[in-house]
Amino acid sequence: MIETAFAKINLALHVRRRREDGYHEIETIFAFAAHGDLIETVDGPAGLTITGPFAAALADGDPEDNLVMRAVRGVASLPGTGRPPAIRLDKRLPVAAGIGGGSADAAAAMRLLCGLWGIGPNDPRIVGRAAELGADVPACLLSVTARGDARGDELRPIEAPGLHGMPLLLVNPGIPLATGPVFAGWDGIDRGPLAEGDPLAAALAGRNDLEPPARALCPVIGDVVALLAAQPGTLLARMSGSGATCFALFDSDAARDAADRAVAAARPDWWRLATRLR
């Protein structure tokens, strides 16, 4: 069995206030790329094996404390489940990159086990376990275009036929960026709500309030966004999540592919993924 941990994109992300529980009240539009990490069952004793281009970034951590294994234990604790299988994570996305890597991996593991044990992924028990793992995990469990409020975990799926299949380019400058310091750097100013209605129009009119503090910690983010915005056919260029991955939406595959080549020529050391929105 195999599941894709689809890369998460925040088309816009408005931070409204800091909550008493330490989280922040946000309004965001989640979208998902067609590609991401892979989670699969393999032969062998129960546990987690990590392979892939970015496996080394997770090599120093305790596999049992990995969010995937926490997700596995959460699902396996439910009645009617069985002994957890051996799982392999093919880590294809950068770590600490603002595209939901760990959250998407955990969500994909939950979907995989739901399929294995005949549990609906919309089962309230599964949704509850997802929320316990992190604010982005419920959105990644759905992996559909959705409006996220509160911590980002109050979700409303959005009909977005105009976004489905839209050409997308992800670019990361190769610098991991932890979420905590970025949120801590937010200036506390509420710059207003995220518009309702058409998600692309709302994103174009919106912003990512985490981009300024992320740029303060990692100035090259500004270079990434500027390079993407300068490419012909770019509809929207912005940082995703808490960074440092940035994205651009394009009006055609040809424009995306030309931008991919331009970024590769200008900065061959940056990671890129030419894909499309689900």
Rank of each mutant, 00 (worst) to 15 (best):
N66Y: 03
P53G: 04
R83G: 11
I39L: 08
R70C: 14
A96W: 08
A46F: 01
P53V: 08
G74R: 10
V72M: 10
T81W: 07
G74V: 10
M69N: 14
T51R: 10
T49F: 01
T49A: 07
R83S: 15
V42M: 01
G80M: 11
T49E: 07
T51S: 11
L48V: 03
N66G: 09
P45K: 05
M69G: 07
T51Q: 04
H35W: 07
G82Q: 09
G98I: 14
P45C: 02
L78M: 13
G98C: 10
P79Y: 15
G102D: 02
V72F: 03
A96S: 14
R73I: 14
G80D: 09
D62Y: 09
T49Q: 06
A86Q: 08
P63E: 07
R70H: 12
L93Q: 06
L89W: 04
D37C: 02
H35D: 15
M69E: 12
G61F: 07
V75K: 09
P85T: 12
R83N: 09
R92C: 14
G44R: 00
G98W: 10
D90Q: 13
T41K: 04
A71T: 13
A97D: 02
I39E: 00
K91S: 10
D65Q: 15
G82W: 06
R92S: 12
V95M: 02
G82E: 08
P63Q: 08
A56H: 13
A86K: 11
L48G: 05
